[in-house]
């Protein structure tokens, strides 16, 4: 089985409002899949459908090739964006309760919790009430209760909110380790730098429709414009600019460099390659800087959403 989760032609409406329109996704086994989209695009609805919190109007979801069933709940771990814990309950009691609701036996849950509490070095919190914890501490507990039942599929909605950079890193490493141990992760966030760091695949949902889907690298390749950022030194900059303008599309660029050079973005004409550009540049100037412009995840996001307007 290549795909752990397959979402097939899901539609969902709330009254007159269409939250999802015929959305299909395939989430490869043991990957980190970024589910992106502007606020209100329908991500949360899709995630809730996968968690069987709400039912789709049309379409089906397959987990491991089987249509979703109530028993699958124990194979999914979900960290919602709107999350919290019972404020008056003790941390340990609460974690045990949530583990048992996921179908673990009490003794097994205790064992797993001990492992995680030791790992995060928070064993002393067991008898504390949640209201005594800071927000970051509570988030750690929340992360533990999401992953403790060793689910095949993990769904994190903005997992880093509420964490300081140190703890955010800690959680990021845990997510990567869980993936290495065999888990598949769906990761929904607005922080594009973490998408860049973590995701193998992404899908972009905007206005209830999927508008982009695939391997992050492939999409970047698709979205790149054959543009290069260059730094040039020449006796006669205006002549150089003129020559370049005659052959390529150019615009001013800003980047840091040691030299007081001419900084340009140069876009190739169709059919040209970087080799021809470099040859041209070498003939007319001294090249101090040369990089291909690869769109960032953030660029992809903005471009795709703008194209969808």
């Amino acid at each position: 089985m290549n795909n752990l989760l397959e979402v097939k032609n899901i539609s969902k409406s709330y009254g007159d409002f269409k939250a999802l329109n015929n959305v299909s996704l395939a989430i490869p086994n043991q990957s980190i899949f970024g589910l992106l989209g502007p606020n209100g695009a329908g991500k949360t609805t899709l995630i809730r459908i996968i968690n069987q919190i709400i039912m789709p109007d049309q379409g089906e979801v397959l987990l491991d090739g089987e249509p979703l069933k109530p028993e699958h709940i124990s194979q999914i771990g979900y960290l919602p964006e709107e999350r919290g814990l019972y404020k008056n309950m003790k941390v340990g009691e609460q974690a045990l309760y949530l583990a048992q609701l996921k179908g673990m036996s009490k003794s097994e849950a205790k064992k797993r919790l001990k492992y995680w509490f030791d790992k995060f070095d928070i064993g002393s919190w067991w008898d504390k009430k949640v209201q005594e914890l800071s927000k970051g501490m509570a988030q750690k507990v929340q992360f533990i209760v999401t992953v403790m039942h060793q689910p095949k599929l993990l769904i994190f909605d903005e997992p880093f909110s509420g964490f300081d950079p140190i703890n955010a890193n800690l959680i990021k490493d845990e997510i990567l380790q869980l993936k290495d141990e065999g888990a598949t992760v769906i990761f929904s966030t607005h922080r594009m730098e973490s998408v860049e760091e973590l995701c193998d695949h992404i899908a972009l949902i905007d206005k209830s429709n999927k508008i982009l889907d695939g391997k992050l690298d492939d999409i970047k390749r698709e979205f790149k414009t054959n543009s290069f950022q260059v730094g040039l030194q020449s006796e006669n900059e205006s002549l150089l600019k003129e020559q370049l303008e005659n052959n390529f599309k150019i615009s001013t660029a800003t980047f840091k460099s040691l030299e007081n050079d001419l900084k340009l973005n140069i876009t190739l004409n169709n059919g040209d390659t970087s080799k021809e550009l470099l040859q041209f540049l070498n003939q007319h100037a001294q090249v101090t800087h040369f990089t291909e412009i690869i769109p960032s995840a953030s660029d992809l996001f903005i471009k795709a959403v703008q194209n969808n307007e």
Partner: peptide, 17 residues
């Protein structure tokens, strides 16, 4: 209301109906 305001509700109903 407590479950709603403490935002635990979505965690719980991802486990039970």
């Amino acid at each position: 209301i407590e479950e709603k305001t403490s935002r635990i509700i979505e965690v719980i109903i991802s486990s039970v109906k």
